[in-house]
């Protein structure tokens, strides 16, 4: 069975920016060959998974306020099935890291990430989490959360507008839609040591 390109309701495929990445994931899947039964089941599971992504409340500063607006009436995250913001990492699917991460916070973030159950995802929301942002030259700010935890979606902006946050959320949904769940994501049990890439 062939894996198709992921579809998101109300946004055309061409309107997304980095389709090459998604296509490379699709290619990888197709190259390893997908069984029809498993493939269909995977599709179903991924569809449901991607439409009920529960975020973990992790706001350290300004970006968190925009995230609160996302939850409030005008933007209403519930449309994406992502309104159930959890306060415990063990109940969350992804961590939307909003706000600067300082040296003192780094061990805490790492621990919280490790407490989350697999499969788990990370959105680096805001310039601070992408690269240190306005505080890049500071003596105690981590220059991008990817120095401590792996990141799935990078979302620039200071702070990103709520619309941009939705875009990041949809990108994450797309990514989930083209992963192998059975025998893939659901098998990740062991803890992996994360080694940040050289910059």
């Amino acid at each position: 069975m062939e894996v198709k390109k992921p579809k998101i309701k109300s946004m055309r495929y061409e309107d997304f920016k980095d389709n090459e990445y998604i296509e490379s994931l699709v290619e990888q899947l197709n190259a390893s060959g997908v069984n029809v039964v498993v493939g269909k089941l995977d599709q179903l599971l991924n569809w449901s998974r991607s439409n009920s992504l529960w975020p973990f409340c992790f706001g350290t500063s300004c970006c968190a306020i925009e995230f609160m607006c996302l939850g409030a009436a005008r933007y209403d995250m519930a449309r994406f099935g992502a309104e159930v913001a959890r306060n415990s990492p063990r109940q969350a699917d992804y961590i939307m890291c909003q706000g600067t991460i300082t040296y003192r916070m780094a061990p805490v973030l790492k621990r919280l990430y490790e407490q989350m159950a697999e499969p788990k995802y990370v959105i680096a929301c805001g310039a601070c989490t992408v690269s240190g942002g306005p505080f890049k030259n500071s003596y105690c700010v981590v220059k991008g959360v990817d120095e401590i935890i792996p990141v799935d979606v990078y979302l620039p902006g200071c702070p990103p507008r709520p619309e941009a946050m939705f875009y990041a959320l949809m990108q994450l949904q797309r990514k989930i839609k083209v992963t192998k769940f059975l025998g893939g994501d659901n098998r990740k049990e062991k803890r992996m040591e994360y080694v940040p890439a050289e910059k």
């Binding site: 350290t60 500063s61 706000g99 600067t100 300082t102 003192r104 916070m105 805490v108 505080f135 500071s138 003596y139 105690c140 700010v141």
Partner: peptide, 8 residues
């Protein structure tokens, strides 16, 4: 305190 001390 200091979990968000950014050295401004």
């Amino acid at each position: 305190s200091g979990y968000i001390h950014r050295g401004i």
